[in-house]
């Protein structure tokens, strides 16, 4: 990854370094990774917008049950298609040096399937179903699980988790920071 054959200009690199949790080298590396998703397209236009299907080719995202949600949350056009900048945003949030608050913010948006700014019962059910994948969990168990989560975390007892409550969980969750991370 030399700077000489890079498609990014120096100012852009400086911008990206200032505006993400990456160094210049890492930005270049990220661009390379982005390029491998669609070499032709990105070769022509470094800021090409790749459809969600292409972004989901990224190995970590392809097997991630929340892959589509992630793309949608980070896509600036809201439909899952990502430009390099969106991709960089995504990787920056998932990087090791991003603070907990930033990660929590995005995690909340990822888990918020219906986009109503609350993690309601349906959101939680979807999260659990995505987590277990093909292994089905019975409706009854699902209800018990959701009930247990709400019992633990729903501080004001309104049947849904607001962001404040979510952040509170994340503060107490010992594994979130280490698991909500994609190495470049």
């Amino acid at each position: 990854m030399g700077q000489a054959n890079s498609q990014l200009t120096n100012e852009e690199l400086q911008d990206y370094q200032d505006l993400t949790y990456f160094t210049k080298k890492e930005v270049l590396f990220a661009h390379q990774k982005f390029k491998t998703l669609a070499p032709e397209k990105v070769g022509h236009n470094k800021n090409a917008k790749l459809p969600m299907a292409k972004i989901l080719l990224y190995p970590e995202l392809s097997v991630n049950p929340f892959g589509e949600r992630i793309c949608k949350v980070f896509s600036s056009s809201q439909d899952g298609d990502c430009t390099f900048e969106d991709f960089l945003d995504m990787m920056s949030v998932f990087s090791e040096s991003a603070p907990k608050s930033v990660k929590a913010e995005h995690a909340f948006r990822i888990f918020d399937f219906d986009g109503d700014d609350m993690l309601g019962v349906s959101d939680l059910k979807q999260v659990i179903q995505k987590l277990t994948g093909e292994n089905k969990i019975s409706e009854n168990d699902l209800n018990i699980l959701v009930q247990n989560i709400l019992e633990e975390a729903d501080l004001d007892d309104d049947g849904a988790l607001s962001f404040a409550e979510f952040e509170h969980i994340i503060d107490r969750s010992s594994d979130f920071l280490s698991s909500f991370r994609i190495r470049l």
């Binding site: 991630n64 939680l124 994340i170 979130f176």
Partner: peptide, 10 residues
């Protein structure tokens, strides 16, 4: 639920 998935699994 929220920290269960390892996002690094590829």
């Amino acid at each position: 639920i929220f920290g269960g998935w390892d996002f690094c699994i590829h």
